[in-house]
Design a protein around this nucleic acid. Structure first.
Lengths: 185, 185
DNA sequence: GGGGAACCGGACCGACCCGTCCGCTTCAGG
DNA sequence: CCTGAAGCGGACGGGTCGGTCCGGTTCCCC
């Protein structure tokens, strides 16, 4: 299987591509969605022309990075559907999402902002799975009514964002906790 | 009293200054803290040289706008200290802060980011008053322990930020409600 | 190992933007 | 009204950044 829809890259090109994606993920997470391509290229150890050959535009690179993150979240969310305790699964989902936003506090903003098909598709898939988790938790009486995946994502992303300027580094746990309590029936 | 520490402006200059501050407040609220000075000058109907004569730097302009907002909040917070019901005063504070962030969803971010003395001073004064409101509410059993003005500001600002990309326009009320519930003991 | 394609990277272009500067305009007091 | 000072605004400089391009290099396959 796999998806050799494009001819395989040359070995050096593939290596550079991997380094670009890794560097871009780091740079976006650390410096925000407005990092210059030059900075990313510098971190990846390539010329910025190389970046533009793989990704025709800066937004395309952002989309590729975001999609990877969304796919990770999707996989973990699907795994949580197998968890028998719906309430615990939901709580775990919150913490997983929080950890993810924690690693890249621009993740939520990026996903909401980016209009590339690649990202909106990933967001859609994730929303469907998360909605299932939420409905399950609501039926189990663990979550209040009237919330969907968008709400939960926004609130968790916001809690992390709130902690970005906090004094102590572990404040984000308290903030997520506040949201978690507020989400109960 | 008053503060004629600088010679009074000429009538036309004062009028332009007012228009610049109003246009800047709008532009920052609408387009974020990175709007160009050109855009602000255009909205104010002046050349951008005029903006730079009043405010030596873009940050100075941002600081002036932010300070005005902080002063409004400070005044309303002080008024709430006179409210006999500590719990109700606290809840009202939350909604006032939310409304303020709602009008300018970059307010919180701007206040946290801006390093101008003008702003840090205003923030300090506001924090003192809000801390008083929080302590009072906690003694009345309306708020959980371990929260200070910074936490509350961050959480409310975040909830509004979260609602920025929401589908329905009134979602922000639900989000603030979630935070409010999460803040109780 | 040799040839050709794939690939690289930095020079380059245009757009944007902050902040300065100066010739011209407008105000206000006498 | 007249004059000088205050104010105006657009041209300009310096810098950054996204995106293009091409001469030279590296890899892969035969």
């Amino acid at each position: 299987m796999g998806s050799p829809e494009t001819t395989a890259l040359r070995a050096d090109a593939q290596r550079n591509l991997d380094r670009i994606l890794a560097a871009a993920a780091d740079a976006f997470a650390e410096l925000g969605p407005d990092v210059s391509i030059d900075e990313i290229a510098r971190r990846a150890g390539v010329g910025h022309g190389t970046v533009f050959r793989r990704f025709p535009t800066k937004d395309a690179l952002r989309a590729a990075v975001l999609r990877r993150r969304l796919d990770e979240l999707l996989e973990r969310s699907r795994a949580l559907l197998a968890e028998p305790d719906a309430g615990a699964a939901f709580e775990e989902l919150i913490w997983v999402a929080a950890e993810s936003c924690r690693r890249d506090r621009f993740l939520f903003e990026g996903v909401e902002t980016c209009a590339e098909l690649e990202v909106t598709e990933g967001k859609q898939e994730l929303h469907e799975t998360v909605d299932r988790l939420i409905r399950r938790a609501r039926r189990a009486g663990a979550v209040r009514a009237g919330l969907d995946a968008r709400d939960v994502g926004a609130l968790v992303g916001a809690a992390i964002q709130a902690a970005a300027h906090a004094e102590r580094d572990e404040d984000w746990r308290r903030y997520v906790q506040v949201v978690l309590v507020g989400l109960r029936p």
